[in-house]
Design a protein around this nucleic acid. Sequence first.
DNA 1: CATCCGTGGAT
DNA 2: TATCCAAGGAT
Length: 303
Amino acid sequence: MGGVPELETIPAMTSVRMADEVLEWFAVCARDLPWRRPETTPWGVLVSEIMLQQTPVNRVLPVWAEWLSRWPTPADLAAEPSGEAVRAWGRLGYPRRALRLHQAATAMLERHGGTVPDELDDLLALPGVGSYTARAVAAFAFRQRHAVIDVNVRRLVARAVEGVAEGPTSVSRRDLALVADLLPTDPETAARASAAFMELGALVCVARAPRCAACPVRDRCAWLAAGSPPSEGPARRPQGYAGTDRQVRGRLLAVLREATGPVEQADLDAVWDEPVQRDRALAGLLTDGLVSRTAPGVYALPH
DNA sequence: CATCCGTGGAT
DNA sequence: TATCCAAGGAT
């Protein structure tokens, strides 16, 4: 029903051959990203995965290098005030990720002897680590065989396997089983295949204008075979940014990041005219732990 | 399950 | 210029 093949109808040989061809392409076309190098520690992989959430590779590269140089282990980060993590996050966006990474470093110190855990459940229990990131770290840092489904893999599977332009935004159990079936049996090869699927989605099977002529699986792509039908259903409205609390929070935090010490209320007030929204945004930052009040009317990054 | 949470490059 | 989009997670 619905044009989506049942798992049993996908011949194992077809699945394995798809992985093989993507791996062959990956061996030639993969970007040389520092967190993929063999000498990168699990901590380096974890930091990269958190930074890459909703953030393009090119913007992550310099910040990742700075972080790993400054904080080579979880213990090094945990030893600093959380505000230093927020400051070093720079303009990557979603600064709560910096706070959670600091919390995760502390948790690893307490629960795992200062090391990144290698079990899925332990990874999932870390702040800021969800299903995708736990699987990515288990696969890429510890070379385990897990389905790793990010937006790129979800889109690749929707097209190549399901024959539709895009899949649902959420990852279902069925998706995990389907992608797991695509992976080679050998864990090391499976881990490499997971990176290869993501890379193919990021470089070739892209959202806007896919480069199907350069795709290693074009001959077996269900979407291409169906004539590349457009996505069905109403386009979901993007969230918008201008004028939102998020924009105000961003401006407030930028002032605090760039200041060397505590900041007066007046300096924060200067970034937004509307006092109700401005106060709400600042209150939210305080609630989230991204900002602390050091004295009445004086604010700083948290300790 | 819908919404919130930043930022900036590409089209 | 406006919209789309980028290795998601928490609530």
